[in-house]
Design a protein around this nucleic acid. Sequence first.
RNA 1: GCGCUCGUAGCUCAAUGGAUAGAGCAUUUGACUACGGAUCAAAAGGUUAGGGGUUCGAGUCCCUUCGAGCGCGCCA
Length: 576
Amino acid sequence: MADPLELLSRRLADAFAALAGSPVDPVVRPSEHADAQVNGALSVAKALGRSPRDVANDVLGRVGDVSDICESVEIAGPGFMNVVFAADFLADQLHVALADVRLGVQVPTRRETVVIDYSAPNVAKEMHVGHLRSTVIGDALVRMHEFVGNRVIRENHIGDWGTPFGMLIEHLLDLGEARAAEEFSVGDLDGFYKEARKKFEADGSFKERSRLRVVALQAGDEETLRMWRVLVAESTKYFNRVYRQLDVLLTDDDLMGESAYNELLPKVVERLREGGLLQQSDGADVMFLDGFTNRENEPLPLIIRKGDGGYNYATTDLACVIDRVERLSANRMWYVVGAPQAQHLQMVETATRAAGWLPSTVEMRHVAFGNVLGSDKKMLKSRSGDSVKLSALLDEAVERATAAVREKNPDLDTASQDSIARMVGIGAVKYADLSTDRVKDYIFDWDRMLSFDGNTAPYLQYAHARICSIFRRAGIERSSVDASLLALSAKEERALALVVLQFDSAVRDTIDKASPHRLCTYLYEVATAFTAFYENCPVLKSDEPVRTSRLVLCDATARVLSTGLGLLGIDAPEAM
RNA sequence: GCGCUCGUAGCUCAAUGGAUAGAGCAUUUGACUACGGAUCAAAAGGUUAGGGGUUCGAGUCCCUUCGAGCGCGCCA
């Protein structure tokens, strides 16, 4: 553990508990009045019917000498304890954290198996900004869980099954496979889909062929399956190109499409029937779950098997839960899926808990997110009114970043410029998405996300690049600096060290809440604390031992920035 | 109609139930032959949509009104 605030909380917990007669977790938080503020005394005082300042005094008496951690502790205001940490303590903690690959971030006491369901594009359909959110948020959560040592299973639940495939396969036949592959390879999936849809709506015979084709597909007709595989293969090839462009971890090994659960679906029905959980309604097999009603205020069913005997997505999602719990032994299942799916996922959870498939020890969590909006506060659309293609958006990000890098750093060779522009452009798009509270909608704004001011990827990357520049200029390897020589005296040094040490709790808090923006906010604080230090505390111009000490602090800051950005899936260039 | 989510500075966003609600942009005023000015310092800007309640303490929890978005039976 590295966070001084949490260490202090632990240190005080026993004294609080002894006084209160029950366990207390004293809240220690950053404060503008001191390094940290302890506010456990107020709540304890209420329970004891005593004055908060009295309680605070008592606690300090019981806890004894804290001078190894604190330079001063003052009781202030209505009963807060204002704490200033001892500089040596901060330096020691940082020294220890720097020896750790995780920079002091605690790992869970029990290694967990976390299934993260994210991205989920549809076969033969374009990826758009909605997929951006799921992909980028999911990918960041994957990286964080892996970082703290959990076993992470990525699942890309692509839409590769269902009635549209009759229509798509017939269109594939009409078009010819070579021609279709060509359309897919240039990324014109929407064109393909729209043409198929148009024919389906206009041409009765095509519609009938499509219907028959769905039947053939579900019956396992070999030639039909072969063509279906062509569609899936060409689409995933395209998805992979976008994933590489976006620099996320997803590969073919993570594909777990709807079709993967087909053979489980009859078993789902069977198990529900055996459990007496199925009911008939309008010819369909359904589950009625407490608390869900429809427009007429009647019970709303979860449809397990349609009137025509087919299955739909609810059945697949139930099968998914079974698979993840029973085959993968998941402790946690996180669904990085848009907010509109909330009710559906609640029904799936309620149903699988009722069926006994989802034990209370297994967490099922909807990591919901809002929409990407344009400057008009409506769903982001291209000029033509279509949804924005993700690949086109990412291309534009890199183009814009390239222009900026060429302007700011014209002497750099083109290859380096391109490489940096990619990190900056893609980083800016990801960071813009990750840095706001995911449950809210956010407004997509090129100028803001690519700005070097404010809470943006370029600002953080710039702070990192400046630190690298100091070491370059000094001709010193970052790894060669002796961290034991760290000593903190200037107030900007102390402030920076204190923030850097909170990487530990920032990462864990971000995972707890599945909210990447928390890590973003933290990293922004690191960067601003660094620039304050940078302005006021010369590094290379200082004499020893201050010079080396400040180099240690620079290295620590750079490591937190690059590691933190890495957890968000964003690269930190050494120059830009 | 029922349900879910959201409403914070002119704009874009933060804020574990804790002191005087914080940043960036824009506005105004300062600091440059610089360890990278792609920066920094400062000023100004708020009835946290309105109203009740719980609490020692509410932007945060509860109720309610208003506003915005979304969902609600065989698409996924």
